[in-house]
């Protein structure tokens, strides 16, 4: 590896952070009031559940699969948290553990039967939605007090949402990018045959990654319901596409193995801020979806340019 190769590479890994910084500066310029403890908290607290859902999606993308059910899964978790978890904590915890188990089994099913994950998870999205409606036919319920207290925690100096995002990103980064086991997990997405030949069980890897995704999906649901204090069967349906966009925006790729946990967290925050930015710009809602797409395309185009520069060297 020559020193010359390093520049585009560093640029590429810095791109998500740079886009976040640019967006933040633009928001502070438009709305100076946002440049405060209170303001940053309001801007970013809803990014915490999105970041967790994005990481869940990232685990699935790591093994070259795609999860189209994460939005309805997070909604279902929110419904459990707003009903069983506060009324019958034991049942609630068992249900949440059961959810993670279902995710692990899905991983096994997809691997053993060699099914396309898109089809399986698309089907599951309807199952989760149906279960949510059964559990909570009309919007309501109350999040457990400790959950609300946790999400409303007033940490000194830096808002809780920022600390949470950093901690989540770092923990996953250390586990997936810096540990030997993490390298194997990522390798199973990039080159499954090589990993299998080296003696690793691909089944176990798939199950691990899906279980991790389920785990982070549960955390996302809990964080969300802690913020909203009450649930709705449709509360997080948007997270499916947001989480995929977040992973890609954060430097991940669809090919498996090429992911970045810190990038994914930053991607989720960038997407959240993009919405606020457009709203501060007073852009008509008819244009907002398009403008959000334009921001995505802009960042991805920049990445393509950097990739091309990398290839040319």
């Amino acid at each position: 590896m020559t020193a010359g190769l390093l520049t585009p590479r560093v640029l590429r890994s810095l791109l998500p952070a740079l886009s976040l910084a640019v967006l933040l500066v633009a928001i502070f310029y438009l709305q100076p009031r946002a440049m405060s403890y209170f303001g940053i908290n309001l801007l970013l607290n809803l990014a915490v559940p999105i970041a967790l859902a994005t990481l869940a999606q990232m685990f699935i993308l790591t093994v070259n699969d795609l999860d189209l059910s994460i939005g309805s899964f997070v909604s279902f978790v929110a419904c459990i948290a707003a009903t069983w978890l506060s009324e019958m904590p034991l049942l609630g915890i068992l249900a949440l553990l059961g959810c993670i188990l279902v995710y692990a089994l899905l991983g096994a099913l997809i691997y053993l039967r060699d099914l396309p994950s898109i089809v399986v998870t698309l089907g599951m999205s309807f199952v989760w939605l149906g279960l949510s409606v059964l559990l909570l036919p009309t919007p309501g319920g109350t999040a457990p007090g400790w959950l609300q207290a946790l999400m409303k925690l007033k940490t000194p100096l830096v808002p809780f949402c920022v600390i949470a995002a950093i901690v989540i990103g770092l923990v996953v980064h250390l586990g997936l990018m810096r540990s030997a086991h993490g390298a194997v997990l990522r390798g199973a997405g990039g080159n499954p045959k090589a990993v299998a030949r080296a003696g690793w069980s691909l089944l176990r890897i798939k199950v691990t990654m899906f279980a991790l995704a389920g785990c982070f999906g549960v955390l996302a649901g809990l964080a969300l319901v802690g913020l909203t204090t009450s649930a709705d069967a449709n509360i997080a349906l948007r997270y499916t596409l947001l989480s995929i966009a977040g992973v890609i925006l954060g430097g991940g790729e669809f090919v498996g193995g090429r992911v970045s946990p810190i990038g994914a967290v930053i991607g989720a925050m960038t997407l959240t801020l993009a919405g606020s930015f457009l709203s501060f710009l007073r852009l008509s809602p008819d244009w907002q979806i398009g403008a959000q797409g334009a921001i995505l395309i802009l960042v991805l185009a920049l990445r393509m340019l950097i990739n091309r520069a990398e290839a040319r060297r």
């Binding site: 309001l42 909203t228 709705d232 509360i235 948007r238 919405g275 606020s276």
Partner: peptide, 30 residues
């Protein structure tokens, strides 16, 4: 979507409005 409207309301708080008139996506999620 409720999550999007929740973010919108938080933005409106930051923009310094004195009152928010709301037609809500969900009776509880906001």
């Amino acid at each position: 979507q409720a999550t999007e409207q929740a973010a919108q309301i938080q933005n409106l708080i930051l923009q310094g409005y004195d009152a928010i008139v709301l037609n809500a996506a969900s009776p509880t999620a906001l």
